[in-house]
Amino acid sequence: MGHERLAFDGWIAGVGTGSGTRVVIGHWLRSPFGTFSDVMLERADGHRVLFAPTPPTARCIAGVYHFDEVRTGPVTVRVSGTVWEVAADSLALRFTVGRRGPLGMALRAVPRSLARRPSWAALAALPARALPGVRTRGSSRPGHRQWYAACDLFPITHAVASLEGTDLGPLAPVLPPVRFGFASAPAAPSLVRVVSTIERPVHPADGRLGGTDAPGS
Rank of each mutant, 00 (worst) to 15 (best):
L175M: 10
R100N: 08
D152N: 13
F182K: 04
T35F: 01
S139F: 01
V64C: 04
D9I: 12
V195D: 05
G143T: 11
D206M: 07
L126I: 14
T76I: 01
L126Y: 06
L103D: 05
I25D: 07
R112C: 02
P177Y: 09
G34H: 02
E42P: 01
S184G: 15
L123N: 10
A58K: 03
P142V: 04
A214C: 09
I12D: 05
C151A: 11
D38V: 09
T76W: 03
R30N: 03
P32W: 05
H144W: 14
D38N: 14
P155D: 08
R99I: 04
A44G: 11
G14D: 07
G181V: 09
V192S: 05
L107D: 07
F182I: 02
V97H: 06
T54D: 02
A13M: 07
C60F: 14
A44Q: 12
P173E: 14
W28L: 10
V134F: 07
R22V: 12
H27N: 13
R43N: 12
V70C: 03
T35K: 08
L91V: 14
S140M: 02
A183C: 10
V202Y: 13
G26L: 08
E199K: 01
A7W: 11
L6H: 13
S217I: 01
A124F: 04
L168R: 11
T212Y: 07
T76L: 13
S184C: 15
P189I: 08
V174A: 09
P204L: 15
V64P: 00
R48C: 11
G46M: 08
S90K: 02
L175S: 15
V15M: 09
A161G: 11
V15G: 01
D9K: 07
I198P: 01
T57Y: 01
F180E: 06
S31P: 09
T136F: 01
V195N: 06
P53A: 06
A58R: 09
